[in-house]
């Protein structure tokens, strides 16, 4: 996913804004930003319109397919219903992600240090990389218990693999002249690691955060849904039982927006900080 995602990210970043061109007529700035919104968001706008159309043309009630506006109104009228579960879900994604980043980077450093550990661990890890981690939720639930610890373990596993691969890749990246300077001045392996390679690995770590953070929210909700342990996931289960379709759709919208915000934030963090370490 790394290569393709980064290619896509670069392409998205390189799309020039319509503001670059000079426009004539009234309110050029407003027209430019409208053009930009249309260029980037036409499929989303199309989807919303399609959703509204399907609901209206078929005469569906809110029980079957609530309309976009009634879902939005439901969220704004009942913020207390959604605020706490959303916070619980978001907060639960944090410890697992942090653990995954720490364990993944730690193992990458160990593997960089020792060629025997490299031989023992790296092939197994690359095999594990192709295993669907989220699909292992029931096994981990059975092992760890039907509680928050399962969520932490699942999110940890989810962020561990990309971190390990990306950080190790950056640690091993050849950087001829800088490494020569360290060598000539007689730097030890440890100081080469601390002063040259670890800073060099920071962009790898940030890329891992960007790749895993939005997905860990989904994993938390899936675990909460499957094991009925609080948060937005449990709210989905409860609302399905009560046939409260509007709430289910509202959760879907909140989750989507939250994931997109987390993706945008982590992407911004990566863009800002990575430049300093390149």
């Amino acid at each position: 996913m790394t290569k393709e995602s980064s290619v896509l990210a670069t392409r998205i970043a390189s799309v020039p804004g319509p503001g670059v061109r000079r426009r004539k007529g009234l309110f050029p700035a407003a027209r430019a930003s409208l053009g930009r919104i249309l260029a980037l968001g036409w499929p989303i706008i199309g989807l919303l319109l399609l959703w509204e159309l399907v609901a209206v043309l078929n005469g569906y009630t809110d029980l079957l397919l609530p309309r976009p506006l009634s879902v939005a109104a439901h969220i704004f009228n009942n913020p207390q219903t959604f605020a706490e579960p959303t916070l619980i879900t978001l907060a639960l994604a944090v410890p697992g992600t942090v653990l995954g980043l720490v364990v993944g980077s730690g193992l990458a450093i160990l593997v960089w240090y020792s060629s025997i550990l490299d031989g023992l661990i790296t092939p197994t890890t690359s095999v594990f990389h192709a295993i669907p981690v989220v699909a292992m939720l029931p096994v981990i639930g059975r092992l760890v218990g039907y509680n928050e610890n399962t969520i932490i373990v699942i999110v940890m596993l989810l962020s561990f693999f990309p971190t390990f691969v990306l950080v190790l890749g950056r640690l091993r990246q050849a950087n001829g002249s800088s490494e020569d300077v360290f060598h000539v001045f007689g730097a030890s392996r440890r100081s080469t690691l601390v002063r040259l390679l670890l800073p060099q690995a920071v962009p790898g770590l940030l890329a891992a955060i960007r790749m895993t953070a939005p997905f860990s929210i989904g994993a938390v909700i899936l675990a909460q849904y499957l094991l009925s342990i609080g948060g937005l996931g449990q709210l989905i289960t409860d609302s399905i039982v009560r046939s409260d379709t509007v709430t289910v759709w509202a959760i879907a919208c909140i989750t989507s927006v939250a994931s997109i915000i987390v993706f945008a934030l982590t992407k911004a963090l990566e863009d800002r900080v990575s430049v300093r370490f390149k």
Binding site: A9, P43, I44, F215
Partner: peptide, 19 residues
């Protein structure tokens, strides 16, 4: 259409399956 398609695909991929 390209910019919009890229953007939507990455957004759809970010949205969790449960949602």
């Amino acid at each position: 259409l390209r910019a919009g398609l890229d953007q939507t695909a990455s957004i759809l991929n970010t949205i969790p399956l449960v949602a």
